[in-house]
């Protein structure tokens, strides 16, 4: 039982690792942004998991039964906000990538020494 109870934390950590690795080790800028998305999804999982209550239901009261067992609404609200933040960051990041492609002709290896006029 313990192993199963900890399962979500395991996946949280593993997803975090996968996403973070892609952010650091991938050279392609679109790939980096995908890595960021996975990285953030891991955090969503952390929050949603901590608010779940055994035997509970979604925090929507059905049939005026306010006494039932509900999962915690607060982490869900936080994650709704975080998802929105994530898509906003992705959109802005992609717009920058498009401009990088237009000005450099590539979307990886952007650290290569440039023939730009010195500073």
């Amino acid at each position: 039982m313990l192993a199963l109870d900890l399962f979500n934390s395991w996946i949280f950590v593993l997803l975090l690792m996968v996403g973070f690795y892609a952010v650091i080790a991938r050279d392609n800028l679109v790939k980096k942004l995908m890595g960021l998305s996975i990285f953030q999804s891991a955090v969503f999982l952390l929050f949603i998991t901590m608010g779940t209550v055994t035997g509970g239901t979604a925090p929507i009261v059905l049939g005026d039964d306010w006494g039932a067992v509900f999962s915690n609404p607060l982490p869900q609200v936080l994650i709704l906000t975080a998802i929105v933040v994530g898509i906003s960051t992705l959109a802005l990041g992609l717009a920058i990538v498009v401009r990088i492609k237009e000005s450099y002709g590539r979307i990886s290896d952007i650290d290569a020494p440039e023939r730009d006029r010195r500073l």
Partner: peptide, 10 residues
């Protein structure tokens, strides 16, 4: 400015 911004964003 563009790669600089991208790094800043990440």
């Amino acid at each position: 400015a563009l790669p600089a911004t991208f790094k800043y964003l990440v």
